[in-house]
Simulated assay, not measured.
Amino acid sequence: MTVFMEAVAIGLAIAAPVGPIGLLCIERTLHHGPARGLATGLGAATADALYASLGAAGMGVLIGWLTALATPLALAGSALLLQLGVATLRRPPADHAANTRDGGSLLTAYSSALALTLSNPMTILSFIAVFAGLAGGRAPGGGQALLMVLGVFCGSALWWLLLAYGGGRLLARLGLRGRRWVDRACGVLLIGFAGLLAWRVLG
């Protein structure tokens, strides 16, 4: 179980830094409740697990293929971030309870976060390096690789659970004006992340 717990810590460390998915989780928790925020985070956790599975397998052909697609995927991710940021800025302030009852789909929240996280295929290289260290420099066996992937998913999912339901209680206490400022901050930061990603790719 040591490898599993180490992989949980890795998944938690990968998910915890504030980034575009974290901002989306906060924004969706604020407007639609913790379930939408958690669905967003689970989309990111699924993408982490998918890349972790490729990293654990050490599939050289797929690695080269994903690396070749890094630029168009990154640009697509940048465009998605820009769209989400602009939509967040343009959204009018509304009552939290009404937003929680708003339609919307958990599947949409999940799939958009999954697509956004998958737009950074270079993540697989970091998983390969980390898993090589966990496996003592050798390709992990089937059982060990499965524990690593499950650990990464559980660690990442744990962070999103804490953020959606723990942070959601704090966000629920904000007034309309306070929630509007959170929207503005999230929108500006999402647009900033979009610009930064595009600059890294094209610069």
Rank of each mutant, 00 (worst) to 15 (best):
M1A: 14
T2V: 12
E6P: 11
E6Y: 09
A7E: 10
V8R: 09
A9P: 11
I10S: 10
A13C: 13
I14C: 08
A15D: 06
A15K: 07
G19W: 13
G19I: 12
I21N: 04
L23Q: 00
L23R: 00
L24R: 00
L24H: 01
C25D: 03
C25I: 00
I26R: 01
H32K: 03
G33E: 00
L38V: 07
L38S: 07
A39S: 06
G41L: 06
L42C: 02
A45M: 09
T46A: 15
A47S: 15
D48K: 10
D48E: 11
A49G: 13
A52C: 04
A52W: 01
S53N: 08
S53V: 09
M59N: 04
G60I: 00
G60D: 01
L62W: 02
I63H: 10
G64F: 01
W65T: 02
A68E: 06
P72Y: 06
L73Y: 05
A74N: 09
L75F: 05
A76V: 14
A76F: 12
S78A: 15
S78K: 11
L81Q: 11
Q83C: 11
Q83E: 12
G85K: 03
G85C: 05
T88V: 13
T88E: 12
R90L: 15
P92I: 10
P93T: 09
P93C: 08
P93K: 12
D95K: 08
H96T: 14
A97M: 13
A97N: 09
A98E: 15
T100N: 13
G104F: 02
G104V: 06
G104W: 02
S105P: 01
L107Y: 10
T108V: 15
A109W: 06
Y110T: 14
Y110G: 09
S112H: 07
S112I: 06
A115Y: 07
L118G: 14
L118C: 12
N120V: 14
N120D: 13
P121M: 14
M122S: 10
T123F: 10
I124M: 15
F127E: 12
F127P: 14
I128D: 08
A132K: 04
G133H: 04
G133P: 01
G133A: 03
L134A: 04
L134F: 08
G136H: 06
G137F: 03
R138L: 09
A139C: 03
P140W: 04
G141D: 04
G142M: 02
Q144E: 04
M148A: 13
M148I: 14
F153P: 08
F153W: 15
F153T: 11
C154V: 15
G155V: 13
S156F: 11
A157F: 15
A157Q: 14
L158G: 10
W160K: 06
L162I: 03
L162R: 02
Y165T: 02
G167Y: 00
G168S: 05
G168R: 03
L170V: 11
L171N: 03
L171P: 00
R173F: 01
L174C: 02
G175F: 00
R177I: 09
G178K: 01
W181D: 02
W181L: 05
V182E: 08
V182N: 13
V182M: 12
D183C: 10
D183T: 10
R184P: 09
A185T: 14
G187S: 00
G187N: 05
G187M: 01
L189G: 00
I191R: 02
I191Q: 05
L197H: 07
A198H: 03
L202V: 13
